[in-house]
């Protein structure tokens, strides 16, 4: 849970910086994919540091820093502290930055084994044992969830900060969005396990709209009841193993998902 700090009103032409840590660049791409809104965005704020988009680097301080990626190397653990110092308002964007991302699956395994298997000369690899979210290292003012983040939420974030509004980023279930859109519920109509009832809204119910269950790329909602949902998946014929895998994806290391997946892993092993 994020600590509450006042929402600032950043001045027009605020300096925006975008930083990348361990990630796939997809969330930065989401920024570039804003298309018609991109020009408006560069009009509203000064893009001071965004290596994926432009070579020019303006020196810190920055008014708003968007951070993509998780912390998975000693160097990143150092660098994020400097980024925090350089940014007045720091926002973790995407599943990696807000929960550790898919690379946090290593947190259940031995990283030495992985490094040995992947690299011919593992002695040159400096990596941490775990991949962790930004908030595990520095204070984070706000989070945008998702793999990748949602365009509309990115725009909402920036336009909200420009007027000093708390960004309208609901923490309630995906089902509310899905039902507002009038989509058929894949769990109720197909008996398909869908994490929607335990996942934070924000994507616009992309997967249910394609007739497939939500796999939780926005991570757990406020107070998810994963015990009950897990029981329901079992009734629908899912195995503990399948449920574990469903939870151990983009947001595996978010506490509610972690606890629930560990629970199903234990039950799987007992069988």
């Amino acid at each position: 849970m994020l600590a509450k700090r006042p929402i600032p009103k950043v001045p027009p032409k605020s300096r925006l910086a975008v930083f990348k840590f361990s990630s796939c660049d997809g969330c930065q791409l989401s920024l570039l994919n804003l298309e018609e809104h991109l020009l408006e965005l560069v009009d509203a704020v000064e893009v001071a540091y965004f290596l994926e988009a432009r070579r020019r680097e303006l020196p810190p301080p920055y008014d708003v820093g968007l951070v993509e990626g998780s912390i998975s190397t000693p160097h990143e653990a150092q660098r994020i502290r400097q980024v925090r110092r350089d940014c007045r308002y720091l926002v973790a964007i995407g599943a990696c930055a807000s929960s550790g991302g898919i690379q946090a699956l290593r947190n259940w395994a031995d990283i030495g084994e992985f490094v040995g298997a992947v690299y011919p000369n593992p002695q040159y690899i400096r990596t941490l044992d775990t991949a962790t979210p930004i908030a595990a290292h520095v204070f984070v003012d706000f989070e945008l969830r998702g793999c990748p983040v949602n365009h509309a939420q990115l725009l909402e974030l920036v336009s909200a900060l420009l007027v000093g509004r708390r960004p309208n980023v609901p923490t309630s279930s995906l089902c509310l969005e899905c039902k507002r859109r009038g989509l058929p519920c894949v769990l109720v109509t197909h008996g398909q396990p869908c994490l929607g009832p335990a996942v934070q809204a924000g994507c616009g119910a992309l997967c249910p709209a394609c007739n497939r269950g939500c796999y939780g790329c926005f991570g757990p909602m406020e107070q998810p009841n994963l015990n009950s949902l897990g029981d329901r998946f079992l009734e629908l014929g899912a195995s503990h193993r399948q449920i574990k895998h469903l939870l151990r994806m983009f947001n595996a290391y978010q506490e509610p998902f972690k606890q629930a997946s560990d629970h199903h892993e234990r039950l799987e092993q007992q069988k």
């Binding site: 309630s172 279930s173 089902c175 039902k179 009832p197 107070q223 009841n225 009950s228």
Partner: peptide
């Protein structure tokens, strides 16, 4: 049992 997902209210 309740998921507090809000489907019933929608």
């Amino acid at each position: 049992r309740c998921l507090s997902c809000g489907n019933c209210t929608m």
